[in-house]
Design a protein around this nucleic acid. Sequence first.
DNA 1: GCGATATCTAGTCAGGGTCAAGTTCGGGTT
DNA 2: AACCCGAACTTGACCCTGACTAGATATCGC
Lengths: 190, 190
Amino acid sequence: MAQSPRPYHHGDLPRALIAAALELIDEVGPAALSLREVARRAGVSHGAPAHHFGDKAGLLTAVAAQGYELLGAALADAFESTGEFREVGVAYVRFALSHRAHFEVMFRPELYRDDDPAVVAARVRSSAMLYGPPADLSGDAVTGVDGAVAAWSLVHGFATLWLSGNLERAVPGDPEDAARAITGFLSIRR
Amino acid sequence: MAQSPRPYHHGDLPRALIAAALELIDEVGPAALSLREVARRAGVSHGAPAHHFGDKAGLLTAVAAQGYELLGAALADAFESTGEFREVGVAYVRFALSHRAHFEVMFRPELYRDDDPAVVAARVRSSAMLYGPPADLSGDAVTGVDGAVAAWSLVHGFATLWLSGNLERAVPGDPEDAARAITGFLSIRR
DNA sequence: GCGATATCTAGTCAGGGTCAAGTTCGGGTT
DNA sequence: AACCCGAACTTGACCCTGACTAGATATCGC
């Protein structure tokens, strides 16, 4: 990059900071994230992040909002391309494993401002994909709010347990295949 | 106790420190836990915890080990008193909600030493309650490793989502009843 | 009693979050 | 073309925290 010492204005620092944050979260987890290290990786001073995000929670709020947007898009795409609610669940797991940093931040509300408008909007949109589809499939085995909660719990739990290293021994193969198999246990209510 | 200014020797400082840690985790989460604040609440100097637990990860390791022991006991008790695997799942959720601090630490392996012998032993014991019972109930709808993983994922996901505040709107009533209802969606595989 | 040892205190250092003030740059005004 | 205003970024400081060390103190075995 630019052998010139460094332009005073970065150009798109917010994006660069978020990218650095995601990389760092992948390495040390969201709790051990350091604003100074993020700034270091983006090649700016330790105070620069505060200008764009206010504080640490502000940066993580941006990460969470982006995460909910990506999740919503991934779920919508899965439903539109397959038409199966089951594949929405598989896409949920796929998202969690392929966007680990986003996912881990999203479900730690104490780390960011979960009432931020951008976060709320993106979360509503992705939640609609979890509660909406089953209602449209009246013939589906899993219906109603309880069914949606059950399905969401199942895939969320699987993703969470996988990310925390609790399933590596019990589920040796590809996690996505395992996730698809797991959803087979969800059935009509008696 | 003891209105004397303070005995030099606390008596049972490790237990008091863990209790203070649990209380603090309930308030600010496991990531924001501060050893100094823990020491402050236990009424000892800021260096005292290091003597008993080495470092912060050591304290959380003790919390995790205690958590796995309590969980294992709760699951075993649920199975023995009801004979139903389903109630083991409900007990899992009940434990997570009533021992939030323990639960949140247990499933954040990056915060403690998850290869600690005491932790491993306690975890194996509680895992046995999740994998064992279904094997004994050959007539049960959910069998095999995949079935156990599905059941575990379901209740773990429900507990996690509840703790992160994602279900309060969709599930208005008693979470334990909701958990019992959710398990009704788990059925024999086709 | 008396030392040995576990227990706890106090001081120190590096690293991090946040704040306030200063510096540099781009773009618009006259 | 000169000016200048505000946004972007830097710099320096303060306080808190985690970890380490040396020293003080109480308890227990003998």
